[in-house]
Design a protein around this nucleic acid. Structure first.
Lengths: 179, 179
DNA sequence: CATATTCGCCGAATGATGTTCAGCTTCAAC
DNA sequence: GTTGAAGCTGAACATCATTCGGCGAATATG
């Protein structure tokens, strides 16, 4: 009997899906990670050690990837934000293009489905620096064209929210999807 | 306690442009904000109280907007990432559309220059939820169309980096720009 | 040129907070 | 009923954040 449970335990990773209490903790930490565990526990309805243990577990399991300071783009001298769509010849995702991640101006790199191949989020000091970055991208073998969307104003920008909308207003197509 | 003395000093602008030492501190905090001030000071070449004072000032001045935990999208049940371009009739930026910020699925809202008007970054549980969100967007008065770029893979996603690339390889256009 | 003032930093002391521990309760499996 | 695991709590302990006085450098002032 004990053998079975032991065996089961061993291949079970500490991975455990987060529950409602974890979500409350995450919700608070996503807003402000500088709160004390006492205050955090109070918000989530538990004691400080309990909050500490759950947060520790979420860090281990990867549910909390990291805790970081968010720098103000203007204060660090990078007021210009742009999204760059990159088209490539053949199947994109070239390792050469990934090298642009070494530039601190590049914040995100995604491959996407749609008329573009690769999508970049970049933040530069001015249009001059953006031009320099675009020139660098064009120099990459396989890149055929780019389209840049320069951000005029940002109205919302926040980290991943733990909340999930449960019930969307059903699309009124006159019929319901099978899946 | 300390608030009173702080209040007295408030007519003096604490606004001061960040220097190289501040940038080193920011660079460390953007990677990991859980380090102790002792370790932080060591990385930036100063004592713990010095690091503490500079960080405190950067928080006050807004150079550090907030310190947050980054949740893993997959762990919180939102594995699907998409960028949605929204076209609107007339001058977009409708207050009605800004209401979508109440959905935890919406992470960014920008107005952009280019063929699109408004750009959203959204993260949903599945394609069904994305459809629900798009339906909600289409219901907004003035919205004429949307184009969605569903992310296949994310290769880089990080917060604002304090570093700035000083010298870009000059665009080889055969002539130099005036500005 | 000498002096006063401001500013930032350091080392040490203090108070708050993170972290661990033993014991209790609940729950499920057997 | 019994056993074992898991999670929580309050209290003890260790660590760290935060404050304070004093020092040196740089700048302003006489």
């Amino acid at each position: 009997m004990g053998e079975e449970t032991d065996a089961i335990r061993q291949n079970r990773l500490p991975e455990r899906s987060i529950d409602a209490a974890d979500r409350r903790l995450l919700g608070a930490l996503v807003e402000d990670a500088t709160v004390s565990y006492a205050e955090l526990g109070e918000k989530a309805g538990m004691s400080a050690p309990a909050a500490h243990e759950r947060v520790k577990r979420m860090r281990r399991s990867g549910a909390i990837r990291q805790t970081v300071a968010m720098a103000d783009p203007r204060s660090v001298g990078k007021p210009l934000l742009a999204f760059v769509h990159v088209d490539t010849r053949g199947w994109g995702k070239t390792p050469e293009l990934m090298a642009v991640s070494s530039f601190p101006e590049v914040e995100e790199i995604h491959t996407v489905a749609g008329d573009a191949c690769i999508l970049l989020k970049v933040r530069t000091e001015d249009t001059r620096a953006l031009e320099g970055l675009l020139a660098r991208i064009y120099d990459t073998p396989g890149v055929t064209s780019t389209r840049s969307y320069v951000v005029l104003s940002t109205y919302l920008e926040r980290p991943v929210q733990p909340g999930i909308t449960q019930d969307w207003p059903a699309p009124k197509l006159g019929t319901n999807p099978i899946y």
